[in-house]
Design a binder for these strands. Structure first.
Lengths: 209, 209, 209, 209
DNA sequence: AATGAATGAGGATTCATTCAT
DNA sequence: CATGAATGAATCCTCATTCAT
């Protein structure tokens, strides 16, 4: 009776699961996890409520699955070897771009998890260990290499960079909503200027590139 | 017949309302607004569920009240005239301290609102207009005064400062939980160094004070 | 310690009780018994909620008290000897007037009790026994006296009369609301004509008085 | 994917909805709308409380649905052309029968709505416009045709007829409860006699048919 | 596999009643 | 005695989850 699982079955399975995931991302990001209903997700995903529970044992498992996906993306986006410039400035600039692209590409997922993770202990650890910490380690290492004896620990610098981007992203959601690719260059270069030359010299050395 | 409302009555009223508020802050910050139940708030506040609704018409009104309180605190903490140093450096440092103290002193409230505000349109506007924007304006003005011709707009600098602190706060909640007063000096001075001298010169000019 | 109850106390007591009663009548008639709250009654009566329960052990007791009052009024309004005319027509006309005045004078109370009595067994019996039945008996007797051998039982005639008035009252509440004293004569005389001359002869014998 | 809604589905849906409706009628008529609980309705309908809300968005919607049903029935029971007798007497008799059958067949629904309608503005208008007024217009027209020049307006006669029946129904609910089909003939013919010949001639002309 | 009807535990809120002041 | 704050049981309603089809 039981039909062998074909390759096609699997592809369909993944497609359907993704359909639900995308719908959930949209809904969670608009109403928060607790504020969302499986009914609304089902509707947006164009499946029945029952179907959701074939793909995810519980509503919470959707959230967990989101974290898994973000972990993958974080690794992928930061693991590729960075094209090392030799100058501190270039290295930092590359890091900033990576941060920025990661955030822009995964805005909704990041927003959801950044917040929800606080209310679910099991997720919190993984979010910190597998995403934040991984990125911070990677950044620290890169910084350490090009500025080995800085009296500010490279980790602190990395945290500051990350903090800036998370903060900017949030502040931004209040102003308008979606970050757009177009602004990338400006935000990165403004931040670069502040970080690179310091505020002290703002008047003299700006936009020298 | 009707007893006049005495001063004592009023004090009791405020005390009770605060009791509930404190409980709500604790619960909301641990479980999110939607994830919290009035039952749990009541228990933590040591009142009956019914009592909550004598002091707040709806659960949501508790959230709104939280925003009102944060607005007050924001004004109070930023309205006092800043002791103007004459040097850019000192001014920025003062701003950073203010930011930091505001966040440290109102951690839970900020965490709750930063999150919830996204899901409640009415709150969003007020949060941006009455808190974020007010602080940004204040900061911009201060910056403008001491660094009038910077090619980076003072507003951008102000947003960056705020972004840094919001971001740092969040990143911090993942590491440990509560920010402590003790770390204030270190965080402020590290951030100051980065901002002030820039990363470019990290090796040479650090910690000159 | 316990002060002797003075006459003055008693008067005050009754006054207060009445204050509450009047408020309750107003509220019940607008929202039904179950739909009303003691809070609203208290507010309308200008006393505290607690006070209500000094005068009535429970909310339901207010309803019971209303019934008592209506019983008194029914007796009073129908017990006085009717000025017997010698003609059937005059007798019926007098009965109709009594019915009508009773309804007009106690509109709200009747509306409330007619409705609520159905949902409270204890009240139902008393309402039927002490009000409806009393009136029906009284009317039957009067009719019996002037039309002793009618093949329609005098009781049936009495029920029909009462039915007409209850029905007219209700139908009326849908059109406008309050019955007004002004219409009394017209309603009574129209009804009289129908009853008196029958529909059969409507074209010929109308308004001969 | 999505299964087409079959005829069978629809039938089941209506059956279930009716199950709940019947239960609600029973409960409302025993305890009034406000005095009833969805829990009790659910129990009586042998469904879960949740199910009720699949079929009716709110408790009040059940009441509204009841009104809709009564409107339908009123139209249906009065719209069929009346078998016109040529004599006033026959016409009136037919009208009385219609009234009576309508009331007997829909006793509970009428009792519920006659009362509840007073506390719900939206219902009140519809009840008057779509039921009472429709019936009154129909009756008036019929009367007008057979007794065109009566000095009592046909509308008044129609209102009196309706009033009689509403009133008789109510008075009846206090005596025993359900009206039974058996009594129809008697009640109709007694009322007919009163209306037809008038009280004046009660002694002479009764039961001549 | 997919559906969506049914479930029932649990949530926010109301309200009659009590009781300390 | 009068007050009105406090109570908590009970209400209407929602929603994740199950399961027959």
């Amino acid at each position: 009776m039981a039909r062998k699982k074909t390759r096609r079955d699997e592809v369909l399975y993944e497609k359907r699961k993704n359909q639900i995931l995308e719908a959930a991302i949209e809904v969670f990001s608009k109403k928060s996890f607790e504020g969302s209903t499986t009914k609304e997700i089902a509707k947006k995903a164009k499946v029945s409520e029952g179907t959701i529970f074939r793909y995810f044992k519980t509503k919470k498992e959707i959230l967990i699955y989101m974290l898994n996906i973000l972990v993958e993306k974080a690794l992928f986006d930061f693991v590729e070897q960075i094209e090392n410039g030799s100058e501190v400035r270039d290295v930092i600039k590359n890091l900033l771009k990576r941060h920025y692209m990661f955030i822009v590409n995964n805005q909704e997922l990041i927003k959801i998890l950044l917040f929800e993770v606080q209310f679910h202990k099991e997720l919190k650890t993984r979010f910190y260990d597998d995403i934040l910490n991984k990125i911070l380690e990677f950044s620290s290492n890169v910084i350490e290499e090009v500025a080995p004896n800085s009296s500010i620990p490279s980790r602190t610098i990395a945290e500051t960079l990350m903090g800036i981007f998370i903060g900017l992203t949030l502040v931004n959601t209040f102003k308008g909503g979606d970050l757009e690719d177009l602004e990338t260059e400006k935000i990165v270069s403004d931040t670069m200027n502040i970080l690179n030359y310091g505020i002290k010299n703002l008047n003299q050395e700006l936009h020298p590139e």
